[in-house]
Amino acid sequence: MIIVGVGGQGVIMVSKVLATICQMQGHQVKQSEVHGMAKRGGGVFSHVRFGEKVWSPTIPKGGADVLLALEWAEAMRWINHLRPGKGIFISDTQHIMPPFACRSRQRNADAAYTRETPHEILEQIQDGYAMDATTMARDLGNERAANTMLLGVLSTALDFPAEDWRDVISRFVPPKTVDINIKAFDHGREWAELVHENPDHAAEQLRRPEIAPALLSEAGEHDGDFVQLDINVDWCKSCDICVKMCPERCLKLDDQLKAVLHKPELCTGCRICEWLCPDLAITVHRDPANVKASA
């Protein structure tokens, strides 16, 4: 079994629960995690192997019987580790945007986030579950219980007594949150059972928009890509405000301490310098016609 997510989501807690419950059923267990960078927003994963005798602590590609993902892009990163055709796929559909996804300064830029939608993925997997566990857990009272809700879904696929699950979960979650986590676990079980009876139930419950539509649409009305800066050297009094405030850091003071555009290729024409210059020394042209007029 492979458990994946983003730092802070409880991947390690979930895998400890799984390791403990497997052990309670008399299996030998090895659970391997790499969490050096977990705290700093990187991806976290944990491999849990159980059986009579376990040698390697890690699971090769195509070798996982279960992939439990607490975040959608992480599910996509690891999906090829699932045993083709047979593995069980369980994922939260929530998106945790890495800051890098929103780096582009282009107009109409898309977030650099996985494009695959739960519907597309589930169509290709026999035993797959995608649920908006975070929202469902928030509705129950605490979105952090999303991970135990996913465990509830998993519990219907493994042949371990439900009481053992509840017992182990209550030992591993913070004491104050035992009730809500048990509630979330039971909710996950019920949800999975409803899906077993009627696969459409899952589809109805996929509340989260597949990918936030605005991040993909061509929504941005704008003045076009033309940019040119006019800096009136005589009016510039070297106050440095534009240099400090330019988001692209493309201005600087030259030898004469006058503002100059030293990296024109980075300028996006956002007009911050124009608005903030106390001496109105900067004009940002976004229309080639205007440049000629002022020249």
Binding site: R40, G42, G43, A73, M76, I79, P99, A101, E116, I121
Partner: peptide, 11 residues
């Protein structure tokens, strides 16, 4: 699956 993974370096 042929999926371009979403970069998620530590920050």
């Amino acid at each position: 699956f042929h999926i371009e993974p979403t970069p998620r370096p530590p920050v």
